[in-house]
Computed example of a mutant assay.
Amino acid sequence: MFYTKITMLKDFFFDLIRNYTDNENTINYLWNEIEKNYSNHRRYYHTLQHLENLLVQLVEVKEKIQNWNIILFSIYYHDAIYNVLKSDNEQRSAALAEKRMLQIGVDNQIINICKMQIMATQSHAQSADNDTNYFTDADLSVLGQSWNIYEIYYKNVRKEYIIYPDIIYNSGRKKVLHHFLSMDRIFKTEFFNSKLENQAKENLQKELYLLK
């Protein structure tokens, strides 16, 4: 079956939420909020396409994941709030996830793990929870794609920060690149590490060179 980007994301989301409520008005409201937030005209990378990429990457390792529903909640809500002028986007996204999950009666333990996974995207550090490692690896998977795809990614990120002049943006971007390059392992799981690590380091080094 052929899925468009939005159709696939919507179907997975509806199936997820129907585990907790059969109220179609609520389900539609929650989806419309997700779609609206990720379709904001100021977003160029943190869009529905980013969610689709995470979903595709994680479906590939679904059998390795302990709690698939938590991963799905984390996918949909991890960038639900995104403002380049703010430094608390992860906290605010986690808070929105908690609010919406409480609305549909999700267990507090599931909510807390979801919030932890969303917060983990701040640093993408190694986690004691392997599901979280798969999630953060998928979040960074664009780093290990071909240069053509990576180039589109970093140019779209630049568009999101268009309010900043190059002298300010480039300085901050270099810190981000150095952060990833200083890691012993960018990708924490063996699956993503073996597939993407070397290409990611090449891409990061190349972008860093171009920023000089």
Rank of each mutant, 00 (worst) to 15 (best):
I81M: 07
L181F: 10
L143V: 08
H179A: 05
R158A: 14
L58R: 05
K212S: 14
Y164W: 13
G105C: 06
Q199Y: 00
I152C: 04
S74W: 02
D129A: 00
Y164C: 01
E202G: 00
L51M: 10
N37G: 00
E197N: 12
L51D: 05
Y76A: 03
R173F: 07
K195I: 09
S141F: 09
T7G: 03
L204H: 06
W147I: 11
Y153F: 15
H78Y: 08
Q117V: 01
W31A: 04
Y77K: 09
M183E: 12
N83M: 07
E151P: 00
K86R: 15
T132M: 08
E197M: 10
R173V: 04
I110S: 12
H50G: 08
A94E: 01
E98D: 11
D107G: 01
M8R: 15
I152D: 14
I75D: 01
S194Q: 15
R158Y: 12
M183C: 07
I81E: 08
K10C: 01
F13L: 04
R173H: 09
N25R: 13
H78L: 09
Y82R: 06
S87N: 15
N53Q: 12
D15T: 11
I186R: 03
F73N: 03
T21H: 07
L210P: 00
A94I: 03
N25Q: 13
L210T: 11
Y76K: 03
F135L: 08
N83G: 00
L48S: 11
H124E: 08
E63A: 11
E207P: 10
R92A: 06
Y134V: 06
N23C: 13
E52W: 10
S74E: 04
N25K: 15
N53D: 13
N25G: 09
R100Q: 13
F73V: 01
L211H: 07
W31P: 04
Y134D: 05
L208R: 06
N133Y: 07
W147F: 15
V59M: 14
F14H: 02
E98N: 10
L143A: 08
T189S: 08
F191M: 00
N69L: 07
E151V: 01
V84G: 03
Y169V: 05
Q49F: 12
F135A: 04
Q57V: 02
I111V: 15
I70W: 00
